[in-house]
Design a protein around this nucleic acid. Structure first.
Lengths: 202, 202
DNA sequence: TCTGTTAGTGAGTAATTACTCACTTAATTT
DNA sequence: AAATTAAGTGAGTAATTACTCACTAACAGA
């Protein structure tokens, strides 16, 4: 939505096709010739717009991380402050439901992100700042918020958040990247929330 | 140890170098020419022994999965039956300590396995049977064992084991593949065991 | 000592790779 | 309407890719 830098129809087709192929076979196993063919463009068109294959990948990943991620996070925070979400339980359930819907709508791009994040050390180093600034920082604030309200026991924040992220990371990666045809039920969300809540209460 | 099919010195160097390079840059980003150069062999030697690059990868992964994994699992089970491990707490702590040591000793090969498992759909489909037969089945038995003893509450086994594997998977992948220079403290093992135990007790 | 087998070589190959560039076509600006 | 810019093309390229093959060296069994 805010991501409108006057993209051409052909540009859209290139990006869309690249996302599909990168998600399916990985960046390293996808050639620009293949993208061009499937997107019904000349190979030169890709390089006219993106210069290198590497910058094509970045022009998929960076906007996704830079624009959509934080705005969604603020949305979640807004829900807590504005609406009637009082308990950490409720927050977690909202978070899981929200994110599951979001990742379902952007499944392929999420797959690209995770696959390259794990496969490519350099990309990982470049993206870590974004990740820690946006996700870690915001989640830390939320955690503090509920801890001040006495919702969560006074366990050392850092240590417990590590456990929380380990589970959340494992949850989304396994369900959306490894088990690509998996469907998450409401029952499973409840299980996950209960598992985390009990884990944190220790 | 049982893995001695009269490997040549050059064969060992090829395998060792391939593991290093695949772990660092991924299978798809490593050329056979590069492996040959770094292992100080002719490129033809690689193909004399392994035929294709694909079979070189498999000759790294399959023995690791086929021989070392189950034998270690049996070792763990043996510990429970033989030694004085009575509670699921103790088992979990033993499991984490054991596996952390093991993966530290085979860090690179574990990285290769995880990276390709996530990157390559076909490999994933081929390895899933091994995984479910060995890991899932054995873990299920252990879980039953403690559930029969009244150690664990009678929560539906399948649902709770999903949560358990989500956490364990997230734990090992994040610590050994993503944060490659991370050191796991005993304190963190305790945190992890406590997190899981509380989670399961829900 | 002869002989067959295995280990190892390295030059060579067809195919594929990311990328370039001179060019045409379409859209904007003046 | 003329001029400038941007979008798009596709043939071409140097480098790299996985893999082959005719060959030599080492060595074990008869």
């Amino acid at each position: 939505m805010a991501n409108s830098k006057k993209q051409t129809v052909k540009q859209q087709k290139i990006i869309q096709t690249a996302i599909e192929l990168f998600a399916e076979k990985g960046y390293a196993n996808t050639s620009t010739a293949e993208i061009a063919k499937q997107a019904e463009v000349a190979e030169g068109t890709i390089f006219k717009h993106y210069g290198t294959k590497d910058r094509l990948l970045l022009s998929i990943i960076v906007p996704y991380l830079k624009e959509i991620f934080p705005s969604m996070a603020d949305e979640v925070i807004g829900e807590i402050m504005g609406r009637n979400i009082a308990t950490f339980d409720e927050f977690l359930e909202g978070f899981f439901t929200n994110r599951i819907q979001f990742f379902n709508e952007n499944k392929e791009i999420f797959q690209v992100l995770v696959k390259e994040f794990i496969y490519n050390q350099e990309l990982r180093n470049e993206l870590f700042p974004y990740f820690s600034e946006n996700v870690l920082l915001r989640f830390g604030k939320i955690f503090d918020h509920f801890q001040e309200r006495g919702e969560l026991e006074n366990i050392p924040r850092e240590r417990v958040m590590k456990m929380l992220f380990t589970f959340i990371g494992g949850f989304f990666v396994s369900r959306f990247v490894i088990l690509t045809d998996y469907t998450i039920t409401e029952e499973e969300i409840d299980d996950a929330v209960r598992f985390v809540m009990n884990g944190l209460r220790g």
